[in-house]
Amino acid sequence: MLEIKNLVVQIEDKRILNGLNLTVNNGEVAAIMGPNGSGKSTLSYVIAGKEDYEVLDGEILLDGQNVLEMEPDARAAAGIFLAFQYPLEIPGVASMTFLKAALNAQRKARGEDELTTPDFIKRVNAAATQLEIPKDMLKRALNVGFSGGEKKRMEILQMALLQPTFCILDETDSGLDIDALRIVSEGVNALRSPDRSFLVITHYQRLLNHIVPDTVHVMSAGRIVKSGGKELALELEANGYADYRESEAA
């Protein structure tokens, strides 16, 4: 379970999160929607531990453990995964090499044995097949020259391989074609389980047709301003954020 209490965050003297409260229970899929610049990516970075952000107040607890005190790699080992809105390129490092290094680093941090190469390859191949990622792509340098959609697929492949317990998907649907959206959604749905939760950031209802959320939260000006069930997303699709923008001014 992830609990965020009264989170206040700024970057370079600019306040971005303003006392944000959010709880995501085990097994829950929570969607976050909200206007551009409302702080959705910022929230995901702060949960994952990006350095540049100054946390002025509040706390983030993962199963009761204070996440804010942990290094990003320790948070990853503890089960936090972020599928980036803009995945980074790592020139010269084959995707396969990267995946293996990441998986073994996490296993080491948790005091588990490294995977043997055949075991590792079996797992990667299974995940790649499900996400319809060609094997050749795994030999290429990570994300270098990948199309926007291929990068997003690679993020989900990493998630499937690392088996995190708290998964944040930051606009994973943007850049995906119709078939890819379905394939990626199926990949995510296959990972849904009672002890894994998801925070799905998106602008569009269409992703939520595939990945049906348990809860939907509206974020505006660095706060959760409304929460509801999956029908809230449909309402937003129809009416836009006009109502909630007003709450910014208030």
Binding site: A48, G49, K50, E51, E71, P72, D73, R75, A76, A77, F81, L82, F84, P87, L88, I90, P91, G92, V93, T97, F98, A101, A102, L103, A105, Q106, A109, A141, Q158, L162
Partner: peptide, 21 residues
């Protein structure tokens, strides 16, 4: 940050990036 988010320590990440280079 990307590498660390995947579980690599700063040193492991540097080594990996340098090896790629």
């Amino acid at each position: 940050f990307y590498c660390q988010q995947r579980g690599l320590s700063e040193e492991e990440a540097t080594a990996l990036i340098v090896n790629g280079f």
